[in-house]
Amino acid sequence: MIASQEQWVRFTPRQRLVRFSWYFGIVAALVFSARNVEIIPEFLYDAPEQVADLVSRMWPVAWDYYPTSVHAVMIETLHIATLGTIITILLAVPVGFLAARNITRSTTLNYLAKLILVSSRSVNSMVWALLFVAVFGPGAMAGTMAIAFRSIGFVGKLLAEALEEAHPGPIEALQAAGAPWISTVTKGYWPQIQPAFWSIALFRWDINVRESAVLGLVGAGGIGTALDASMSLFDWDRVAVILISIFTVVMLAEVVVTQLRKRII
């Protein structure tokens, strides 16, 4: 064995220290949480009975409840998701343009746009719904606005990233030909970001269908209102109908989005 032979090590000592402190931190957080969290064991012993009770009360499913009370709010849910997504796009496009560093050359404006995007994402859609219920009163209007404001961050961020990735060649060519700003956008950027744009919009719509199903729990319209009403009355057979219809619609939305993505992109 040669004494001077250097052995290859995967990580530098500093990297190892950092990784170890992360491991340590994660384990410490986990142990602290597990010891500190309040779990009442008496409730847990009861759980199998409660689940059996839940299942027996959900069966048979009250199918006749669907046409009378679920269908209308389900359609409302879809309207909330769709209209919310459309409003989001209208609001997010200007913010996305402001956030894209290759289009807006001002750092202050970039940061302002980023701040709008981050605050939109940090507030949960149910909190947005609570806020808008306080403003507009209960109903689908509050739900639509909640979905719209919640999604700005997501759509705007991805849109800004797509704009920043756009190839500068066509834009420079247009500018060299003396094209006005609006033509650079419609003929230079739009064709390049179009596939990303539609995929972002469809993806967000898919998420919004899921999210709009719970907004009714805080009074913001949609199928959540029916869910809330049935649960307050412990009508678990009706809850079962509602859950099955949510599952079906979410699955259908996913299929629609996958098919449309294949066609458009």
């Binding site: 009442i40 409730f43 847990l44 009861d46 759980a47 409660q50 689940v51 839940l54 149910m126 899921r210 999210e211 199903a213 719970v214 729990l217 869910l227 649960m231 859950l243 949510i246 599952f247 979410v250 699955m251």
Partner: peptide, 17 residues
Amino acid sequence: RSFHPVIVAILFVKAVG
């Protein structure tokens, strides 16, 4: 995946309090 965590939470509140 198809149910929002809040909806799942409702069911678990019934099951485990």
